[in-house]
Simulated assay, not measured.
Amino acid sequence: MAVSEAVEAAPTRRWVRALRFGAVLTAILLLLFGVPWWTLVASGAAWPTGVVATGTVLFAVAVVAFPALMVLGHGPRRLDAAAVAGDTTLGVIWVLFVWAIAGNLLRLVLAAAGVADPTRSRVVAAAVLGVSAVLVVWGYVEAMRVPRVKRIDVTLPRLGAGLDGLRVVLLTDTHYGPIDRARWSARVVEVVNELDADVVCHTGDIADGGVEQRRAQSAPLGDVRARFARAYVTGNHEYFGEAEAWMGRMAELGWDALHNRHLVVERGGDRLVVAGVDDRTAAGSGLAGHRADHAAALAGADPDLPVLLLAHQPKQVGAAVAHGVDLQISGHTHGGQIWPFHYLVRLDQPTVSGLSRHGARTQLYTSNGTGFWGPPLRVFARSEITLLTLRAG
Rank of each mutant, 00 (worst) to 15 (best):
D180A: 09
M144F: 11
L69H: 04
L166H: 06
A182Y: 13
S185E: 03
T56N: 11
G177S: 12
W99L: 06
R181T: 12
A125P: 01
G139H: 08
W184Y: 08
W184T: 14
C201H: 07
R151A: 12
W138M: 15
F66M: 09
V64R: 04
N104L: 11
T119G: 10
R122C: 08
L129G: 06
E190P: 06
L159Y: 04
V137H: 04
F66S: 03
V98Q: 02
V128K: 00
R120G: 13
R187W: 08
G130C: 10
G73Y: 00
A82V: 10
W184D: 05
D180M: 03
V63W: 13
P67R: 00
A111P: 14
I93K: 02
W99N: 09
V136L: 06
P178T: 10
R78T: 15
T174A: 14
A112D: 07
G177E: 07
A197W: 04
R107K: 11
L106E: 04
K150L: 13
V200Q: 04
A133G: 15
L166G: 00
S121P: 02
V189N: 03
A161H: 15
V95G: 03
P157L: 07
A100P: 01
V189L: 00
G130T: 08
A83G: 10
V137F: 10
A102T: 11
P178F: 15
G139L: 07
A133C: 12
A62S: 15
S185M: 06
L72Q: 15
A62D: 12
T155K: 12
V57C: 02
A68M: 12
E194K: 14
V141S: 15
L135Y: 00
E190M: 03
A197P: 06
D198P: 01
P147V: 08
T174D: 13
D117P: 07
D180L: 10
C201R: 11
R167D: 00
H74S: 05
R107L: 11
S121Q: 13
D117M: 07
A100M: 03
A111L: 14
W138L: 15
V191E: 02
W94C: 07
A60V: 12
E194Y: 00
A102Q: 14
G165A: 07
F66R: 02
A197V: 04
E190C: 01
V98K: 00
H74K: 13
G91W: 13
P76I: 02
G160H: 08
L163I: 08
D87S: 09
V128G: 09
D117L: 02
V123D: 01
L195R: 08
H74M: 13
V124F: 08
L163C: 06
G75A: 10
T88F: 09
